[in-house]
Nucleic acid binder design. Structure first.
Lengths: 363, 363
DNA sequence: CTGAAAGCGCTAACAT
DNA sequence: ATGTTAGCGCTTTCAG
């Protein structure tokens, strides 16, 4: 027996108008809630709509209507499951929902091709704007996209050579802050776990680390920096290598939430979690329940999301002021792991350290 | 000074054809990679496309082409940031990417209206199908949506009265398993933290809990079950109430990942984490790094996502076999918290308990 | 091989 | 207050 049709044509305006015995435009008016329709007719139309299960085709509508907001934006991030992205995403959803805008999203998961595909898919579907956490790769196509009217706001990091709105933490200050915290607690040999340096975020954080060391006149970071770490597993291995090598560090600084988790795992395995200090950049869930609690420099993802949403809505509404980077401050949260004392505890409060700590965010 | 135009019309086929000096259709052919175009012409067209930055409008294309897959699906869940949803989502993205399908997504965050809005937004944007984690509310509109050709696969829980594909864990068996584990370790008074019972998931888990207790001839759950718990905070409070009340339980069973975290917090605050047993349903990140490690009955979100994706792709490709529920087994992972002994440790290996444990998943 | 015409579902601009 | 016409950007159908 042959399979029956799946060619289940959805009803169109024309179908409804035939059923209701009115013109196509009258139906359109009723559906769009325009005035100037006799209640009796409107009722008849409504009945036909219901009986046929008619739903307007927003794409055809948009096609004819031409440009203009359509009430949908998209969030495109590396991984919506990452705690940072998740909270940021949630803030965007909330801000948009309050204005009756739906928020769609996509993860590209380390694949720059996926990033492009996702953004273009959304743009093709005519979202009003995109909040994008960009990868490091080429973004020529972004420029072109903007020319076609899709608004873009970047989060977490800028794109080199692209003048766009961007909302992000002051990554450099965050790393500086974390480093100073460790210096103050008497550490001089600090291992740094970082991801790929071609990501702006990572580069900034490394720069902050170096700045703080230099200002405190602490020389060597040689051999203490592991870059290109791709995830929890690699960070764990890198930390183990550092701690079991020659002249190991007395403290660890993890450049990102996933790397922090790797560091925690490594310290556990070596049973050093009460002896080696650890500060993570980015907060991690349950950090306060671990033993010791994990000291972090936390970003404010909800604030970043809210600001990005606000900025995007402004652009969609026609704001044409020049693109501005927007830096959101970070906050150090001491929970125990970062306060484990190092060998130089007494010498720690050097003027240099204090001086750096008071330095303002760079703009 | 007046703001300059933003009316930056995107180039159309017509623009390209004018620039290249060919007909509109020829451009269309080149863009769509059809054969039967003279290389010379094709080259001219390609040049024009590049110089104008032309990008085809997939919506207009779809409008004319009529129905047919478009290479995009959507995942709509309560909260993409929930660890379960996040991993499931990721599995879908991977499965789809392998077939060159982009995956869009949305969270509705406890708001059934948001759920509907998101699904309809995607459907309106003509995704080929939707993977949906449904709320408990009415889903009439889902039926109608399917009539218009949007394929739907449910995950994590079914919708009452709706015959659709659904991929989910055997929640009842999971709860039974967890309960038996605690019984076997000598617990008879087990506190159960559950969320809203009108969510199928929660109801099934409570049923599994009851089944195990009944089979083991353990009477009272009276006063030991807290339902309607909405999140970590409420679960923490409920656990504290249980443990500081009259005749407190010697073990806790948490019906869901967020509730498990609440339970952990409560035990910490009361300093009972080494004396009161805890088993969570759903795995939680870092569960192994806590002290004690958290024993859980873990789902397999990656498998659920992969199966849902496969099922959806099948439907999109025209599979018309009847809708089938698909149960994915769960797995108990002992990590310490669930093995804290209770007062009845010696009497634990009753035949009843063993009998239940061997019962098969219900289908 | 290439092009002209018709129309997908909808709405803006005019009629009536 | 309602209907008619034209056309959004594209592809199909059918002629050249």
């Amino acid at each position: 027996m042959e399979q029956q049709v799946r060619q289940q044509r959805c009803p169109t305006l024309k179908d409804v108008s035939a059923q209701a015995g009115v013109s196509i435009k009258t139906v359109s008016r009723v559906v769009n809630g325009e005035t100037n329709v006799t209640p009796a007719l409107a009722e008849r139309v409504r009945a036909a709509v219901d009986s046929l299960g008619y739903a307007p085709d927003p794409l055809a509508s948009r096609l004819r209507r031409g440009r203009g907001p359509i009430g949908a934006v998209a969030v495109v991030v590396e991984d919506v499951a990452n705690p940072f992205s998740a909270v940021m995403h949630r803030a965007v959803v909330d801000a948009m929902a309050a204005r009756n805008v739906v928020t769609l999203s996509a993860s590209y998961d380390k694949d720059p091709g996926g990033e492009r595909a996702a953004v273009l898919a959304f743009a093709g579907r005519r979202v009003d704007g995109v909040i994008l956490m960009p990868t490091t790769a080429d973004h020529q196509w972004l420029d072109r996209l903007r020319e076609t009217g899709t608004q873009i706001v970047l989060v977490d990091r800028p794109v080199a050579g692209l003048q766009t709105d961007v909302v992000m933490s002051d990554h450099r200050a965050a790393a500086r802050r974390a480093t100073i915290h460790l210096l103050r607690h008497g550490h001089r040999r600090i291992g740094f776990l970082a991801d790929a340096p071609d990501v702006h975020t990572a580069a900034e954080r490394l720069a902050g680390f170096d700045e703080a060391l230099r200002a405190a006149a602490v020389a060597a970071r040689d051999g203490l920096v592991h870059e290109e770490l791709l995830g929890t597993g690699e960070a764990e291995q890198a930390a183990i290598d550092l701690l079991t090598g020659e002249d190991p560090p007395t403290a660890l600084l993890a450049g990102q939430n996933l790397l922090t988790i790797g560091a925690v795992r490594a310290l556990r395995r070596l049973n050093l979690h009460h002896r080696i200090a650890l500060v993570g950049i980015d907060d991690i869930p349950l950090a306060d329940l671990l033993d010791p609690g994990i000291t972090v420099v936390a970003q404010e993802p909800e604030r970043i999301g809210a600001l990005a949403a606000q900025q995007l809505l402004g652009r969609i509404a026609g704001d044409h002021t020049p693109a501005t980077p927007h830096l959101v401050p970070t906050q150090l949260i001491p929970r125990g792991s970062g306060e484990i004392p190092g060998p130089f505890l007494n010498a720690a409060n050097t003027p240099e350290v204090s001086a750096v700590e008071q330095s303002q965010p760079h703009f």
